[in-house]
Every structure is written in C-alpha cells, then in structure tokens.
C-alpha cells in the first residue's frame, strides 16, 4: 500500500500539472514560441524522434566516457596520495585550483588546444574535469579512514603496503567512492552539456546543442523535448549508480542495511 502511494502520488501530481498546463496554454492562447502545450511537445518529440535519439546517444556517450575517465583518474590519484604524503602535498593545491576554476571558463581553451577536428575528445575532457574532483577528494578521504588497529594488525602479520591497500584501504574507501560516483555521474552530464554549449553549432551533435539550435529557430517545443530527455538521462544515471552502490554495499555497510525494529 505504501509503495503504491509512493508511486501513484507523484504520477497523479504530474498528470494534473500537465493537464493544467495544457488547459492554461489553450485558454490564454499563449503562443507556442513562448510556451508550447504538452501535446505540442509530445508531437515535436515524435516528429524528431530519430534525430533526438541520436543526440541523446551522443550526449550519453560523452557523459559515460567522461565519467569513466574521471573515475580512473580520480581513484589513481587518490591511491597515489595515500601512498605518498609528498605527492599529496605537492599536487592537492592544484587539484583544488582545477576544481574551483569554472569549467565554462576553461572550456574554450580546451577546444582550441585539442582542436575542433577532435571535438569529441575535447567534450569528454571538459566533462571529465567537472566529475574528477569529488571522486578524488572522497576516495582520498576514504583511503585515509582505514581502521588504525586493523592496519597495525596487518603490519604485525607482515602485510606489504599493497596488501594493506588492497585488503584494507580500498574496501574502506568503497562507500566513499560510490557516494562520490553518484555525484560525479550527474556532474559528468552537466559537464557534457556545458561543453556542448561552448563547442557551439556545427561540431557537436548532443542534446545541449539541439537545445541551442532549436532555440535559435524558435522551435520551443523541440527545445522542451530535448530538455525532457536531458532530465530523463540525469535521473537514469543517478538511479543506475544508486543501484550499483546498494548492490555492492548490501551485505555490510550501514547505509544499505535496514534497521531491525
């Protein structure tokens, strides 16, 4: 019953909002280039279905590549930091500078350096830059949070630093890393969108570029359709990463365990 309400209630609310929107646009005779009715958006979606799906795939591909690149780079640098205090002291300030500098400001430079003939690589790099920092900082924190007594015990039993990393530090860091992945997944999508905006028309083919293009042509309904797809993509990425997190932690971590009452 509770589950039923959890699903039905938001659906009902959404449906009534759409109904009101449809009625409002018709009753007030709002022009479609200001606010198209939901039915017009649905029509724009089905009319442009093939090309919108191609754009969705393009944005998804950039997002996934950027996320994976940020994951590999973030975890690698975090492991480097955990093994060498010197490396952490030397590099961490630069990681912070990279994080606090708005990516929109760096994006044009990246495009120039990498070149418009390899625009996909530039998009991936820009999006990966956005997703990199939360993975780095959370994994670094996680690797440092290992139980001190367990670490001493392992040393007593003659563990090498790699055994300690593999058997103690990485498992300890896993919940931190997975939490960071949920954030980084959304950030990679945002980064991909920003990168497409900056790359501009003609070279990029993703959903963000479709929004810019449709806006220029005053095809507001198509704009809404692309926007809806972006939101859907963001929710799907978040849900997928949450499911992965739950699945990996379900046996042992507090966050995945239901309190017995």
């Amino acid at each position: 019953m509770k589950r039923f309400v959890d699903i039905l209630l938001p659906l009902l609310l959404g449906a009534s909002l759409l109904g009101f929107w449809e009625w409002f646009v018709a009753a007030r005779q709002i022009p479609p280039y200001v606010l198209p009715a939901p039915s017009a958006i649905a029509r724009a979606f089905s009319d442009n279905f093939t090309s919108l799906m191609a754009s969705l795939l393009a944005t998804l591909s950039v997002t996934v590549q950027a996320f994976l690149a940020a994951l590999v780079a973030g975890v690698s640098v975090a492991i480097l930091f955990s093994q060498s205090r010197l490396a952490e002291r030397a590099l961490y300030p630069y990681a912070v500078i990279l994080q606090v500098t708005p990516v929109v400001a760096i994006a044009p430079l990246m495009l120039i350096w990498i070149g418009f003939d390899r625009v996909n690589a530039a998009l991936v790099l820009i999006a990966a830059l956005v997703a990199f920092f939360p993975i780095l900082s959370n994994t670094t924190l996680g690797l440092k949070s290992a139980d001190f007594n367990l670490m001493e015990l392992m040393r007593l039993y003659g563990a090498s630093r790699w055994q300690i990393l593999w058997r103690l530090q990485l498992p300890t860091a896993l919940p931190y890393l997975l939490g960071a992945c949920r954030i980084a997944g959304g950030l990679a999508l945002i980064g991909a969108v920003v990168a497409e905006f900056v790359a501009g028309s003609g070279t990029a083919t993703g959903l963000a570029w479709r929004i810019v293009e449709a806006g220029n042509r005053l095809e507001i309904a198509t704009m809404f359709a692309a926007l809806g797809l972006l939101a859907f993509l963001g929710v799907a990425i978040f849900a997928l990463l949450s499911a992965v997190e739950f699945w990996l932690l379900r046996r042992w971590h507090e966050s995945a365990l239901a309190r017995q009452s």
Binding site: N149, L150, L153, Y157, R167, L168, P171, R251, W252
Partner: peptide, 28 residues
C-alpha cells in the same frame, strides 16, 4: 610467531567470519 587481540574485535565489516579469521594466512 605473534598474534594480537585488541579491546574491540577489529574485524573487517565487509568480510564474513571465515575471511576475517583467514586474514593472517592470506597475508602470508
């Protein structure tokens, strides 16, 4: 050959009892 037992059980929460008990052997 030494072994150490702390005030807390100091087990790995992500591993079952057998894997925890096996730790010194795995490390060797």
């Amino acid at each position: 050959e030494l072994a150490f037992v702390f005030q807390e059980a100091t087990l790995m929460p992500w591993a079952d009892a057998l894997t925890n008990a096996r730790l010194p052997l795995d490390l060797k």
